[in-house]
Amino acid sequence: MDDRVNQMDFNFSADDLLEFPRDLGEEGWFQFHSEKKAAFQRIENKFGIVLNRRVRLRLRGCDEEFEGRLLLDSLVLPPPAAETVQLRLGRLTFENTDIDDFQTLD
Results as ranks from 00 to 15, higher is better:
32 F>R: 10
80 P>W: 12
18 L>K: 06
91 R>K: 13
105 L>H: 07
20 F>D: 12
23 D>F: 13
29 W>F: 06
106 D>E: 07
89 L>T: 03
20 F>H: 09
74 S>K: 08
9 D>W: 03
13 S>Q: 14
5 V>I: 07
105 L>E: 09
21 P>D: 15
17 L>T: 11
101 D>R: 04
66 F>R: 02
81 A>L: 03
43 I>F: 07
77 L>E: 10
52 N>M: 01
31 Q>L: 14
25 G>C: 02
18 L>W: 04
78 P>C: 05
1 M>A: 14
81 A>H: 14
72 L>P: 13
43 I>W: 07
53 R>Q: 13
31 Q>Y: 12
103 Q>R: 01
18 L>D: 13
61 G>T: 06
78 P>I: 04
95 E>H: 09
60 R>A: 08
58 R>V: 05
26 E>R: 08
25 G>D: 14
72 L>R: 11
92 L>Y: 06
40 F>V: 00
91 R>M: 03
57 L>R: 05
57 L>P: 08
11 N>M: 13
21 P>S: 14
2 D>Y: 01
19 E>I: 00
47 F>V: 11
73 D>G: 12
41 Q>R: 12
33 H>M: 08
69 R>C: 01
15 D>C: 01
24 L>E: 10
41 Q>D: 13
13 S>F: 11
100 D>N: 05
30 F>K: 10
82 A>I: 01
48 G>V: 04
101 D>K: 04
67 E>I: 03
2 D>P: 02
8 M>C: 14
24 L>H: 10
11 N>Y: 15
103 Q>P: 01
93 T>K: 14
35 E>N: 11
43 I>E: 11
71 L>I: 03
76 V>E: 08
41 Q>T: 13
80 P>K: 11
38 A>I: 00
101 D>Q: 05
22 R>P: 08
82 A>R: 12
18 L>G: 10
88 R>F: 00
103 Q>W: 02
96 N>K: 03
13 S>C: 14
83 E>F: 00
